[in-house]
Simulated scan of single mutants.
Amino acid sequence: MNNAAPKAERSRGAFLLDSTSAGVGARGFDALRDVWETQIGDVFQLPSFSPATIGDLRVKGRAAKVRDVAIADVRSVSALAGTPGDDHDAVVMHVVRRGRWTLDDPPDPGRHTVSAGQFRLRHFVRPYAFETTPHTTTKILALPAARLSPLLGDRIITGPADSAEVRLLVAHTNMVHENIADLGPAGVHAAHSALIELAKAVVQGQFDDAEPRLAPALAQAAKDLADSHLADPELSPAMLASQLNVSLRTLQRAFAASGESVAAYIRERRLEEARLALSAPSGRRLTVSELAAHWHFADSSHFIRAFKKHYGRTPADYAASTSPAES
């Protein structure tokens, strides 16, 4: 467990929690309650869990607060069930990557399920019951109703978790988790502004690609997308721009803001994967020609030149340096 911000700093807070170890049980809930109340409870109250959940709470997660926005990433081994806290006038978004998150939508009748690969966003003004299946992975955002309800109204926004707007919002929340401990007042303000603008983009189904505050989220979303398609021969800056619903120029401008280029990022990540492959035991190691083809370099010569320029030695020299010495 890690408290990333001091108690006196009320504009931000963060923690990590892992109660997946055998035998943790109710002690895991006690730890979660204590750190939640300390770090983000003034923005988003801890849900009231069912007795069965408390007795067998096996979750791994992280949460962060940026002013009046709370973000929680929850990977649950056990099933979860309960209701949120009483003070629940917030716009809540669930992005489910694995498993299912089922919730009531008062005053609407019936139960509604967010399945893996989907998201759901709506304004809740009263507690609602929820439950999950075991092994569910979910990102939950609690956003200020005053900033979003004028756009949202009574609508429920649903859709695929890989839509361009959701990709950008998720990428930004991940950057918040990674950097919140180092954010000063200006950083907190910038992170919060981007969170609100990206949440608005989800509601509207489009974002302002000329908004400079969103450039870091756009670049990170493109990197995340590229990382998941490194072996795809169709991977290119144009493909990433198309998937993220922006122009190629807009994507290039977002990368340029941090001194990078889209093509260089793709090439360097492929080189890194090739380097890791060269460290494999010799019996399972691909040849230089095979690596060049697998990572979509024009030919072996182009791959060797790029590898040497980046790492200061040829692939063969690198492979030799990682091989165990013969006795």
Rank of each mutant, 00 (worst) to 15 (best):
A145I: 11
V203D: 00
I54Y: 05
L151P: 01
S48W: 00
L225C: 13
Q204S: 15
I157H: 08
Y311D: 03
T136G: 00
A241M: 05
A319N: 02
A241N: 06
A199R: 06
H88I: 14
D30F: 10
A4Q: 07
V203L: 05
L57D: 07
D34M: 10
E260T: 11
T158H: 03
F124Q: 07
G110P: 03
I304F: 00
A215N: 10
I196N: 01
E272L: 15
L141P: 06
I140P: 05
R147G: 03
R213N: 12
G184P: 13
P51W: 00
A79C: 01
H302D: 14
H177S: 05
R126P: 02
P216G: 08
L121Q: 07
S228K: 13
A231G: 15
G82P: 04
R167K: 14
Q118C: 00
E211L: 08
D317L: 09
A142H: 10
V166G: 02
V170S: 10
S300M: 07
L151Y: 12
S228F: 04
L103F: 12
W101T: 03
H229S: 10
P106M: 06
A181K: 14
P160Y: 05
V262I: 10
S193H: 12
A31H: 06
P107T: 03
P144R: 13
V66M: 09
F297S: 05
A264T: 15
L57M: 15
V66D: 01
A238W: 02
H94Q: 14
F29S: 00
F130N: 00
T158A: 12
P107I: 09
V203Y: 04
S50E: 11
H296E: 09
L248K: 14
A5V: 15
S261D: 11
P6M: 11
L248P: 04
R33F: 02
L151W: 04
A52R: 13
D224R: 12
S78G: 08
L16K: 10
G85N: 07
L46C: 02
D209R: 11
G28L: 02
D108T: 12
V43F: 07
I266C: 06
R126S: 15
P127T: 06
R253Q: 14
R155E: 12
D42I: 06
R285V: 13
R58D: 00
D154L: 07
V24M: 09
A256F: 03
A4S: 11
A263K: 15
V114S: 00
V59G: 06
F207S: 02
R122T: 06
L143D: 01
L169Q: 11
G13H: 06
A145E: 04
A241Q: 01
A52Q: 13
A161F: 08
S50Y: 04
A254P: 12
L218H: 11
G23D: 11
E131T: 05
A210C: 04
V202D: 06
A238H: 08
S236D: 09
T132W: 02
M1T: 13
D68Y: 01
